Computed example of a mutant assay.
Amino acid sequence: MIALPPAPATRLTVAPMMDWTDRHCRVFHRLLAPNARLYTEMVHAQAVIHGDRERLLGFDPVEHPVALQLGGSDPAHLAQATRIGADWGYDEVNLNVGCPSDRVQAGRFGACLMKEPSLVADCVATMAAAASVPVTVKCRLGVDEMEDYGVFRRFIDTVASAGCGLFVVHARKAWLQGLSPKENREIPPLRYDWVHQLKRERPDLRVLINGGLATVEDAVAQLATLDGVMIGRAAYHEPYRLHLMDRAMFAPEQAPRPRAELLRALRPYVEDCRGRGIAVKHLTRHLLGLFHGQPGGRAYRQVLSEGAPRADAGWDLLERALAVTERREDAA
């Protein structure tokens, strides 16, 4: 029997983003989106096995439900890393079959695995056998010259037959040569129709869509036919939008919480981190976009950016940044 996360827990998910979705970012996102499923940055299976696990895998209990995303292509290593992740308390383990970076390709994992569906299936089967948590896959529509929906569906069918019941599909293909990771998020055209066709033809699979979903309306509209959406850079650069999405999907009868109220709810976490010697700059870098497009938003970012590197910076810095926005709101 394929293990799957509860259906409501996949309606809204926040994408794994390298150098961004660390534990501090995820705690902030949990405040904004109490019902979303959060993902770690991608961690290579070998790093999980041999690296500093507290640094790589540690998370705050408030982050649940939270998924560990793994990179790799060796079934035995991925199985061991999955077992370790489950022992650490992760609610899901996700295999990255979508990252197109040169470094990832050199290690034979990420998007290049779209060309090796049987290997991905072997990886998923051993991962699923290693632990009882759901094993899921994040993939693309294809890579390079792969322009055939049938090839994409056969990839999904092959991997699903190995025990994967949930796919997060970035609705673009990737070019493995000639485009940077940033360009691969922007230049290949979005093909939402392929993702919707997959769900129609494989209704027993849980299918989530990722890519280009920047507005609340765009995200909610996908839920009419798909099982969920994954939001990436829009949630990071304009985090209040994530809060609006969570409200729209799970509690539309409730008014959104004000930005300042949400930020002040982070105070106990900030003060706990400071008490453990964690510099506030590691937290504030994730907060810069909270007042994007609002009166005082630029001044808010300036206060945080200039003050966070100070060794004595603490919660008072965030209050000063909030005070700037409140003055601008009063003036407006």
Rank of each mutant, 00 (worst) to 15 (best):
M1A: 12
A3V: 10
L4W: 03
P6S: 04
P16F: 02
R26D: 03
V27K: 03
H29K: 09
E41A: 07
H44F: 13
I49Q: 12
H50N: 15
G51Y: 11
G58F: 08
D74M: 05
P75T: 03
A79P: 07
A81Q: 08
N94Y: 04
G98R: 06
A106R: 15
C112R: 03
A121M: 10
C123D: 09
T126W: 11
A128F: 00
R140S: 11
R140D: 13
R140W: 10
G150T: 13
F155W: 13
I156V: 15
F167R: 01
V169G: 01
A171T: 01
A174V: 06
K182W: 14
P188L: 05
P188D: 07
R191K: 14
Y192E: 07
L205F: 07
L226N: 02
M230D: 00
I231K: 00
R233A: 05
A234T: 01
E238K: 13
Y240Q: 02
H243A: 15
H243P: 12
Q254D: 14
A255G: 10
P258Y: 05
A260E: 10
E261N: 08
E261L: 09
L263T: 04
D272A: 14
I278Y: 05
A279R: 14
H282T: 09
Q302V: 10
D316C: 06
A321P: 01
T325R: 11
R328G: 04
A332H: 12
